[in-house]
């Protein structure tokens, strides 16, 4: 999975003068793997065992052992037969994938577009804009999520206020703008089966996500030698042709890995869904991470939560394998 990175380190030309590496390596790795063994690898194994039991609140004290239930937890999750409201496994999976995909597409397009604007030679105040546009990156995501929860509040949110303010100019009564952004059960577009809360989350995550893409794109744009553009101009290329033949080949090796990375991040983005919509309406903006949280915290279904996490583990593994293949397929473009 990471072969290119690992094999990259070539053996030194000089004769080795240090003591044998293996014993030193053991010494240096021991603390890290002792810690990871206790708090990561062992819990993963323990989790696999738990996933085949009905571990619940009654077993917490340790006095009553949980009963083995075979693959019952896995079957019930896959068939959406859990005794919790609004749980539908396939809907959750497809929503989570679509959520990550739609966000990343928007982030990359906006990030590259704005990086191109800011990279225009001769544009005034470029430094000021760059400094301001980094602001969403530096604010902790938990705060971003709660702030946007406030902006979309039905009674007191900024967006309803602003809309009402604009509405007054057109003689629309302010009561018309009591939009329940995060909880409205009806879909805003009859032909798109997504609730309004999805679009609200999308807006918040767009605000949060594009600036970092822009930083990555800027780094790539600044690595383009100016003579390439001059050469293209001499060949009579127009603006679009210059973008396609010079800019794009330099952007791609930076943006593809970052988009893949962003996809995994967005797939696991806990704060926005949890704090803004709470997974609603009717669990339709729930993600795997928020659902796992609720299985443990709200429902105390530890056995089911364990099986759920095992599903998550495999879904993420498949995603990682696919995306790494994609990254490698495009990596040759860079070299």
């Amino acid at each position: 999975m990471s072969a290119p990175v690992i094999t990259a380190a070539a053996p030194g030309r000089r004769r080795r003068r240090f003591s044998p590496d293996a014993r030193t390596a053991l010494l240096y790795l021991a603390p890290a793997f002792a810690v990871m063994g206790i708090i990561t690898f062992y819990p993963l194994l323990f989790q696999t065992w738990m996933s085949f039991t009905d571990f619940g609140l009654k077993n917490l004290s340790g006095k009553i052992a949980p009963n083995g239930v075979g693959i019952d937890n896995y079957v019930r999750i896959a068939e959406s037969e859990l005794n919790i409201p609004n749980f539908e496994f396939l809907r959750l999976l497809f929503f989570n994938l679509f959520w990550a995909f739609s966000n990343v597409v928007i982030h990359v397009i906006l990030g590259v577009g704005i990086a191109l604007i800011l990279n225009t030679k001769g544009l005034k105040f470029r430094g000021i804009y760059r400094a301001l546009f980094i602001l969403p990156v530096i604010i902790p995501p938990i705060i971003v999520a709660t702030v946007w929860r406030n902006l979309f509040d039905q009674d007191n949110g900024a967006f309803n206020m602003v809309l009402a303010g604009i509405g007054v100019l057109f003689k629309i009564p302010p009561d018309a703008f009591k939009i329940d952004w995060l909880g409205q059960p009806d879909d805003p577009f009859s032909f798109i089966p997504l609730p309004l809360a999805y679009f609200a989350l999308l807006a918040a995550n767009t605000w949060l996500g594009w600036p970092m893409n822009s930083v990555v794109a800027t780094g790539a744009l600044q690595s383009i030698p100016p003579d390439l553009y001059e050469a293209a101009e001499i060949d009579g290329a127009n603006r679009w042709q210059k973008f396609r033949t010079v800019t794009l080949p330099f952007l791609r090796p930076a943006m593809v890995p970052y988009a893949i990375y962003g996809f995994v991040i967005t797939f696991n983005l806990f704060y926005l869904s949890f704090f803004m919509s709470g997974g609603g309406p009717f669990g339709r903006t729930e993600l795997f991470v928020t659902q796992a949280y609720k299985l443990v915290n709200d429902f105390q279904l530890y056995g089911v939560a364990a099986a759920f996490s095992v599903y998550m583990f495999f879904i993420l593994m498949v995603l990682t394998l696919i995306t790494n293949r994609l990254a490698r397929a495009t990596a040759s473009y860079a070299d």
């Binding site: 990561t40 696991n268 806990f270 991470v289 949280y293 583990f313 993420l316 593994m317």
Partner: peptide
């Protein structure tokens, strides 16, 4: 350092890196 099992251990670290923290919440 060069030692046997280096790749396997690095992949183990990377695998954990990809996993969201919530994934081990029940056993922990």
């Amino acid at each position: 350092l060069r030692f046997r099992g280096r790749e396997a251990l690095m992949i183990a670290v990377l695998g954990v890196l990809m996993l969201p923290a919530v994934a081990t919440i029940a056993p922990l």
